[in-house]
Amino acid sequence: MILGIETSCDETAAALVTAGGDIRASVVSSQADLHARYGGVVPEVASRRHLELVAPVVRDALSEAGATLDDVDTVAVTQGPGLIGALLVGLAAAKAIAWSRRLPLVPVDHLRGHVASLYLGPDALEPPFLCLLASGGHTMLLDVRGYGEEAVLGTTLDDAAGEAFDKGARLLGLGYPGGRELDLLARDGDPTAYAFPVARVPGLDFSFSGLKTALLYATRDLSEDELAARRADLAASYQRAIVRALVARVREAAGGKRTAVVGGVAANSELRASLPDAALAPLALCTDNAAMIASAARFTEAVPYPAYLGLDAYASR
């Protein structure tokens, strides 16, 4: 079995996945509550928490799978991109576990991990397909030609889609992280009440910062009562603008190919409804988790002992 470890942002996660892609255990300890009072992920706070949680999540994954490290033949860990101090905690722990047991280590790219969430379980998807990766940290269109073979067709020039959701939620007083709350609120609103523009950028890239500014302008002159009255309409209109931008790009790039959506934004109900034919990872695998990291390791060359001992993490690609 493959032991996966993920600590790139604010989820500390460990998972056990078989070579065939069956998830035997997937443990995710979210720090969202911890960061809520800061209104966003604070890297130093996240790194401190990862250190507290990294060994417990591995132990929990082993016990959930009814396994011991004797059953593990490969260790996989997120090497980047992400918060560097957070990544280094997972990498140090993973190296130590692998070294102790003389196991090979697979350093996994986090974004490739998100794509590999589609290769798990009974309904595993097979390449080729076009993949939209949309999360709090990333928004990308990927041409997935084969396992571990992805070409970036487009990316965000400013905010990530999930970030746009969270920032919008904050402007609407929904707290952090507010993407899910915004989605729920939008169901009670009129998506045509406001015409929020989404910047047209060349190629297959995305831009969401103008949209956030438009929402700011729409909300800042409202009294508290007015805001309360129009909040659902604002949420619905704002969400529609983001989803339309994402869907338009997916349609442009797909050209008849199968499509898939991964990352935390794949949980958004309007996006799911707008792309009825797209393959979607189960919700639990959309947000950051370690099963997807272990899954990606199945298609990535392992680094043998002792070559991995000097590996470093990377913050950006």
């Binding site: 790194s47 250190l51 060994a55 591995v58 101090g85 280094l88 140090a92 130590a96 576990i97 102790s100």
Partner: peptide
């Protein structure tokens, strides 16, 4: 260094868990 301290302790926790 906060990061340095954590790398040492994370390695220690991995070693302790595995051994």
């Amino acid at each position: 260094s906060f990061t340095g301290v954590r790398i040492g302790l994370a390695a220690a926790r991995g070693l302790a868990l595995a051994l």
